[in-house]
Amino acid sequence: HSIEQTEITDVPAYDTLNPGNLQLVSKLKNPSGSCSVDVSATWWEIAGVKEPCIVTACEYAVSLWKPLDIWQWEKMYSWHFTEIPVLQIVPMPDVCNLVCVALGSLEIREIRALLCFSDAKNENQVLLNSGNIQAVLGLTKRRLVSSSRTLCDQQVEIVTIAEDGGSKEKQFLMPVEETIQTFAEVQGMQEALLGTTIMNNIVIWNLKTGQLLKKMPIGDSYQASICHKAYSEMGLLFVVLSHPCAKEKEPSGSPVFQLIVINPKTALSMGVMLYCLPQGQAGRFLEGDVKDNFAAAVLTSGTIAIWDLLLGHCTALLPPISDQNWSFVKWSGTDSHLLAGQKDGNIFVY
């Protein structure tokens, strides 16, 4: 086994909340030594079988890891980038044999589809979009939505990705005057797309018609909100947000995530729940991910905290290990794994 293959290392036992819920199963080591930026999980067809694979991103390379045995992964393929560094992996729900990445420095400059063809006929990297891109999200049915700034306005565009990685279809959504910060699908509503803006508004589009349906102010206390999850229930829209600019201390503790409810008909909204750190823990949101009823966040303290959104409280804490702070955390889209990464390229699978 080369050093590129996975290994399980000794990790200190945690004296934290419900540590048993999180069990370290393996560690993926990046031998290149370059700065690690993101991780994701995807399905890939290997010898005719769809396998749950892990995708890791360093500054200038993205790697696909296939499962070997229980809790073991082997690097299968790498895509290399020479000019523009990788900013993030763009997870594509419900797809197989396709990875999308955003490249850039401060802003996204390119979005590329990564594929793995053995013949020389097809390219293994295809440029999907370029420009000053502020936000991107992978949607179901091989679609990708992005917003980019032109000289005079903002463009919101959906591309449908063909089997060869090219863009099969392009559709434009009605533009918004304000810069879009994040996009989110509305669970259970295939035709609804939500966006948060830097001016503290939430906007909703109809994906089928491209119509901008409503702009809803959510107040100054939700500045620079990132939307992690949205769902509609009983005529109301529930949205899970995080706030990189949130104050570190509130009377109830340090809020990291927040659930708000909006009535899309009246555009009136209110807070429902604050997801705070346990007493004695410091930090605010740096980076995080929400899947089903679980939220995970890397905090400014270097710790990862996990909340059960239904219970309303923090259920686990992963302190920095090997003297290295955590730098990103993602829920796996293919199984019940939590993928946690450090800057030096080490990825821990829980």
Binding site: S232, L237, N263, P264, K265, T266, M270
Partner: peptide, 23 residues
Amino acid sequence: CNQADLGPISINWFEELSSEAPP
């Protein structure tokens, strides 16, 4: 939270907003 503070609610809000919004 108090639902009354959010105003009248419609289960079919998406369809209604789609029919009201400019094409």
